[in-house]
Simulated assay, not measured.
Amino acid sequence: MSTPAPQVRETIPALERQSKKRLSWSSYPSWFFAPAIILYVVFFALPTFSSFYFSLTRWSLFESTFIGFGNFVQFFKNPQLYTAFVHTFIYAVITSGAKVILGFLIALLLTSPIIGRSYLRAVVFFPVLLSTIGVGILFKSLLDPFHGIVNALLGIFGLPQPGWFTNPDLALYSIAGVDIWKGVGIATLIFMAGIVAIPTEYFEAARIDGATSGQLLRSITIPLARNASATVIILSLIGGLRSFDIIWATTGGGPGFTSDVLASVIYKQYQAGFFGLSTAGNVVLFLVVTAIMVPLSYFLNRRQVEL
């Protein structure tokens, strides 16, 4: 086989360098990300920054008047605000904690060799596909204290028939239960992906060394599913802090203000025509969620790196 001439040997590297340079300066990668960037700017960045401005104004559909921090001062004078904050954190902790625990346990079951595993996976994930408003209306009918099927069945067996959404002591927790039923499927799916991604060689080696099922769970499954756990915690906690639609569809924040959360208080101000005030409330909610999730995300990601 003949070797290239000296001129050819010098030309080939030069052509390769020019080709790499053209490729590196190609506009293709920028245009590839352009649709996502446009959607992000139009539907998130622009409304977010606009809300910061409008929170400092008294505005209507056609005009706005700059009033500084007046909306925020008035917002924090709301007598229901403290209760709404407490309810928001209680609701977020209950729903996110239950989704993490139940999602992980169900994922363990659905990744084990059981009969009808594919069918059970579909059943668990099905509520995720339903409209949140539709789920709220459905459970409002099912849990009706006088005509609901649930209380009718409890009455047959002689059990108490509580007012799930009408009892001030039960309303918030009943809504949380509906939210858990609706959202545990996505937590289960994320955990299943994390568990399935664990190499089977780890389990096989541990079984050869005589490890029990409990030891496999504690030493392999839980540590190596930490990425999935962090994802579920972050997503479910954000959803709990921002939750509104299922609360509004079931109780509207009632009875009284016993199931009001921060988002429902903001919506009531919007209903009353205080648009600037409700915008200020949305900014407060955004800052609260950010203040909680940024350090939590940093902590969970740091733990993953250390692992």
Rank of each mutant, 00 (worst) to 15 (best):
A84T: 06
N78G: 12
Y53E: 10
I106L: 14
F126S: 07
L120G: 04
G97L: 08
G97V: 07
N151D: 02
G148M: 00
G134P: 00
V100H: 13
Y119H: 10
S96D: 09
G103N: 04
F85E: 06
T48W: 08
A107S: 10
R117K: 15
G68C: 08
I94V: 14
G148L: 01
Y119P: 00
N151Q: 06
F139M: 12
F54C: 04
F125K: 06
V128R: 03
I149Q: 11
Y82S: 14
T48I: 05
L109T: 10
F85Y: 14
V128A: 09
P79W: 07
P47F: 04
I106A: 05
N71Y: 05
F54Q: 06
K77Y: 09
H87F: 08
A84L: 08
L56V: 09
P79S: 12
V100Y: 12
V73P: 01
L81G: 01
P145N: 02
G70D: 10
I90F: 10
F139K: 04
N78S: 15
A98G: 06
G97M: 08
S118F: 11
I149D: 06
S141Q: 15
S55R: 03
F49N: 05
V128P: 02
G148V: 04
L108Y: 07
L56W: 05
G134K: 03
L109R: 05
F72S: 02
G103E: 04
T65L: 08
F125A: 11
I149M: 13
T95H: 03
G134T: 03
T83G: 15
V124W: 00
Y82G: 13
V73Q: 12
K77S: 13
F52I: 12
R117E: 13
A107I: 05
T111G: 09
L46E: 10
Y91G: 07
Q80G: 13
R121P: 05
G103A: 09
T83Y: 13
I90K: 14
Q74E: 15
I149E: 11
N151S: 03
F125C: 02
Q74Y: 04
V135K: 01
Y119N: 12
F126P: 02
G103H: 07
